[in-house]
Computed example of a mutant assay.
Amino acid sequence: MTEEPLPSVWARRPKEQQPGLTTEQIVRAALELLDEEGMEQLSMRKLGARLGAGATSLYRHVKNKDELIELVVDVVYGEVEVPDVVGRDWRPAAEKTAHSVRAMILRHPWVGPVLGQAGLGPNVMRLSEKMLRVLIAAGFDAVEADQAMNAMLSYVIGIAVSETAYLAMVKRSGSVEKHLAVLLQHAIWERTGEFPMIRAGFDAMKDRNPKKVRDENFDYGLQRVLDGLAARAATVRFGQ
């Protein structure tokens, strides 16, 4: 029985480079298009026009749009910074990594739903290797370090994708975040009369910078995730 090839650009031999366009040029142009116009606007025809080439020329480098997205996603994964662990103090490296992943997603709002399409790429492999080193320094074995990494990334990606959706709504409104928050205050006040807990929270937050609130909310959740991992790592180290 013949094995089916894996549906990934990373699972086949690289195509020979053709004269003219290079794969790197195509990927870079696709990244620019995605950042400017979003995933909905990415097509091989539109990308070819941007590069001054026909869509057929692009297919000499990638088999289809899914392969192109794999390559682009791996490029943005390469933007994530994972510091080295100093001694056994793993937590600062984990914190900085998480903030770097969030910053990457906010820079590229289209990327959240397709982050899973780069599992075999060289940049995501390097990122995973470095993150696993951080978590093994915390005291986890190889299996649990992988689980801890996935737990941390799930939190970061989940909240960052929610942020990008919110910021896209702000952009569509034609306003800026701080001004829109002021405009919404009256509507929120009117609708929270029968919900005293919601209103109390709104009253406490209404005059604060919304970007600062987002940053603090992200870090609060991150610290609680890391608290949980630290507590679990302590039990692992002591053999419980």
Rank of each mutant, 00 (worst) to 15 (best):
S57M: 14
Y220Q: 12
A103R: 12
P109W: 08
K211A: 09
H61G: 01
D35G: 12
A11H: 10
R133T: 12
V236E: 07
V170M: 10
L47T: 04
S43W: 06
P7F: 05
L120M: 13
P14M: 13
A204S: 15
W110S: 02
V76I: 15
V85S: 02
T97D: 04
I188P: 01
E163F: 08
R91T: 14
G38V: 09
L180G: 01
T164K: 05
R172Y: 06
A231F: 06
L42Q: 02
L153T: 02
D207H: 12
H186R: 15
N123V: 03
P196T: 10
R12F: 04
A137K: 10
G38I: 10
L58Q: 02
L58F: 03
E67L: 05
L31Y: 00
A168T: 14
A230E: 15
V170K: 06
R208L: 15
D207C: 04
A94Y: 00
G201Y: 04
Y166Q: 14
S175F: 03
P5T: 11
E67V: 03
H108P: 02
Y59A: 08
V101D: 01
E67W: 03
L127T: 00
V80F: 00
N209R: 07
P5V: 11
I105Q: 01
E190W: 04
R199E: 13
Q17F: 00
A118M: 09
L34P: 00
